[in-house]
């Protein structure tokens, strides 16, 4: 198909020989788009710091923010994989609950208690693969499949504990929920939940940017038909991304279980999928797929956590927190659109 007008009208930096200046400008542009929402996060944090008379940037408070961001970061990492392929996973909150229930139930078995952690993660993986298989093999729309499993898996989560709260005060590996990794004894430590979240981000980055599979994920999201013609096994990529999303939801469930020593199939993880999707969108990942980065997602998750924490520090009432959070999300994405428009095409 002939070139469309937009690209023809574009000034052609490609043809000029003044390459040095062009690449420099391009680098600045790439830096801006890589930084993405980082300035928003910093401005928000500084704002809260001053409004709360310097209570935001304290070691203790930052630890709390990181810990609050941890589970959502893990879910949002999985969601990033899914949204990069142009899909959506609405079922992560329910899968988190079911996995936590499965894990806690397992932890109470005398012989196998120590295996509760893999049990939770594998439960999540299983649900994720079922989602992926339905989408890839039966060609059902992701929104509908995961909307269905949002409800169905929630039911299974309740079933797992006979619709009660399951407690286990002596759950193994409880330290991952409440302990901290000491960096400098007595000075700096970081919650294990945050360590796990950062590891998840790092591994996600490795998969997305340094493996063949990662390129294939971007390719499927960018142009599914072209990916198929280019010999990519689209079905395998789709099952993989929903598998990852499920697996990380399972990990999130384990993190919650270890933190609370308990899980309730009805209440745990309610509407977590919305926070995860919000983090991905705030991170600049395109909703149609093919464009985005895992670092953006991390910043998105931190913005959400900083916002919750900061509004409490400043003393905003619970009701207004909702309103302000919603508006900040819309405003941040609008800002992002504006910024991209200015730098990209005419």
């Amino acid at each position: 198909m002939p070139d469309n007008a937009a690209s023809e009208a574009r000034p052609a930096p490609t043809m000029t020989n003044g390459g040095a200046a062009e690449t420099k400008r391009q680098r600045v542009r790439m830096l801006i788009s890589a930084l993405g929402m980082l300035p928003v996060l910093l401005i928000l944090s500084l704002g809260f710091h001053f409004l709360s008379d310097g209570r935001f940037f304290t070691g203790q408070n930052l630890g709390i923010v990181l810990q609050q961001a941890a589970v959502n970061t893990v879910l949002a990492a999985g969601m990033t994989f899914v949204i990069l392929t142009g899909g959506i996973d609405l079922s992560v909150g329910s899968i988190l609950a079911a996995s936590a229930m499965a894990g806690l139930t397992m932890s109470k078995l005398p012989e196998l208690g120590a295996l509760w952690l893999p049990a939770a993660v594998l439960t999540g993986l299983g649900f994720g693969i079922v989602n992926g298989a339905l989408i890839a093999l039966l060609r059902l729309p992701p929104f509908i499949v995961t909307l269905g499993s949002l409800t169905a898996v929630r039911g299974l989560a309740r079933l797992l504990g006979a619709d009660t709260t399951v407690f286990n005060p002596s759950i193994p590996y409880a330290f991952i929920g409440n302990g901290s990794l000491t960096l400098v004894p007595g000075v700096a430590s970081i919650p294990w939940l945050s360590v796990i979240a950062l590891l998840v981000i790092l591994v996600s980055w490795l998969v997305l940017r340094r493996t063949v599979l990662g390129v294939h994920i971007y390719a499927v999201g960018g142009n599914e038909s072209a990916a198929r013609l280019a010999g990519i096994k689209v079905w395998a990529v789709v099952i993989f991304v929903y598998g990852v999303s499920g697996l990380l939801a399972g990990l999130g469930g384990a993190m919650q279980a270890a933190r609370l020593y308990a899980a309730n199939g009805l209440q745990l993880g309610q509407s977590y999928e919305l926070d995860a999707i919000t983090a991905v969108i705030l991170g600049g990942t395109s909703f149609v797929g093919g464009i985005g980065s895992i670092w953006g997602t991390l910043i998105g998750a931190l913005i959400i956590a900083a916002l919750s924490n900061g509004l409490i520090l400043v003393g905003v009432s619970d009701i207004w927190q909702y309103v302000i959070k919603g508006l900040v999300i819309i405003g941040a994405v609008a800002l992002d659109r504006y910024r991209l428009q200015g730098s990209a095409r005419t």
């Binding site: 198909m1 390129v215 971007y218 390719a219 960018g222 142009n223 038909s225 072209a226 990916a227 013609l229 280019a230 990519i232 093919g290 464009i291």
Partner: peptide, 16 residues
Amino acid sequence: ALGLFLDMSCLDNINL
């Protein structure tokens, strides 16, 4: 529609 990944770099497109 069926060939290129317009948002991906030329490098990735060539090596896919």
